[in-house]
Design a protein around this nucleic acid. Structure first.
Lengths: 207, 207
DNA sequence: CTCTTTTTTGTCCATACGGCCAGATTTTAG
DNA sequence: CTAAAATCTGGCCGTATGGACAAAAAAGAG
């Protein structure tokens, strides 16, 4: 703690390094989204990025680091998009609606990345066989549960277990997005409105 | 149509054949549930079933047929469990609650198989890269949507798009089950009650 | 018991995987 | 310009995959 902390960079990265990493991460997201987690190989990613496979192993320690970059980068940018929208709302209900609404909106604008993240989060495992992103998912649930609990204290919401319902809500949102990404006939804005309506009716205390 | 139809068997299967297939399908479900779809190989399945890998390729045409057997067998048995319960309910709301309740109940009693099916449905692809079980999922949505539409005609439910909401409800249910299978701290009966309550508030027309 | 069919085994194959490395090439620094 | 550092390439390795195969073993039929 003597010196300042700089978590994002232990050694300064060159321009080329930064550009290559971004290119590779983007290619990885596209491959995973199109071919699925199980079929996403380094060779495919290299081919998609029009580079030699070795470039990937030069800039990344391994497949795991690439996938983690895809996921964490996406979450960071998504949260940056959502954060302001949520905190601007005065009521808990408004914050819940802002959360889900902004999330759907951001994912809508980044469809490929979203599909890739879903694949990775659901498929990537550590060496011992457990899901590699379980902790990140739990964090998200906790964040929304906090808002729900506040809404209950203020009388906005009816009685329920905040974490349980937070989990249900987030799963709903992912589900709507999942059906949208795999089915062209799905109209996302309409689905989004229906979902917000659905949640609204489900958690509000009043009639 | 001159003779009777017998879709489940083109050629009568021997006792051994039937037993082996069941054993292999069960081993496959266990392996997929524990190691994930991407790590489920014929070798692992054979090891788990304590048989030679070649026995699998003798009784099944390939990996695809095994996975299809896991999924279709599970859906058939689950539907058999749910069907009576649903049709016994006089109201549409009762049928929706019976659907979700019976589904959670059945899945609770067959946790390993359920996890395997989730993995397979979400991960298994055809040669062209599209999800192999998209049609089956759509069927399920249609079935529930029909009940919702009837409930709307009878005035039980408020106005919404039946297919959209059917999709949301089913995704919710899967979500609750997903969090339960990956998190030991989750209490399924409590979650199930919360979910039924959640849905109840969300779709009912009256206050 | 013998012959035929079914079932099982061990081995082999072509392919694909993630990762490694020596050397070539490019960029940067002095 | 020259030397050092960074970057890139093609090839290679060990492993694992799904599947094919002949031969052995077991089961069934007469």
């Amino acid at each position: 703690m003597s010196s300042e902390n700089r978590p994002p960079e232990r050694k300064r990265r060159s321009f080329i390094e930064e550009a290559r990493r971004a290119q590779i991460v983007e290619a990885a997201a596209r491959v995973v989204a199109e071919a699925g987690y199980a079929n996403a190989s380094l060779a495919r990613i290299a081919e998609r990025a029009d580079i030699s496979k070795s470039v990937i192993t030069y800039h990344f320690s391994g497949k795991d680091e690439i996938l983690r970059s895809v996921v964490s980068g996406f979450f960071e940018r998504a949260w940056a998009h959502m954060e302001g929208r949520i905190s601007a709302e005065p009521t808990a209900l408004g914050q819940v609606r802002a959360w889900i609404g902004a999330q759907l909106e951001y994912f809508d604008e980044h469809r490929t990345e979203f599909l890739a993240v879903i694949e990775i989060v659901g498929g990537h495992r550590t060496a011992d066989g457990s899901l590699a992103f379980a902790a990140e998912m739990a964090e998200e649930v906790d964040g929304l549960a906090e808002i729900l609990a506040r809404g209950q204290r203020d009388g906005e919401f009816r009685a329920f277990d905040p974490r349980t319902v937070a989990n249900i809500i987030l799963r709903c949102a992912d589900g709507v997005l999942g059906s949208w990404t795999t089915n062209d006939a799905v109209d996302l804005p309409a689905q989004s409105a229906a979902l917000l309506d659905f949640i609204d009716h489900a958690i509000r205390s009043g009639p």
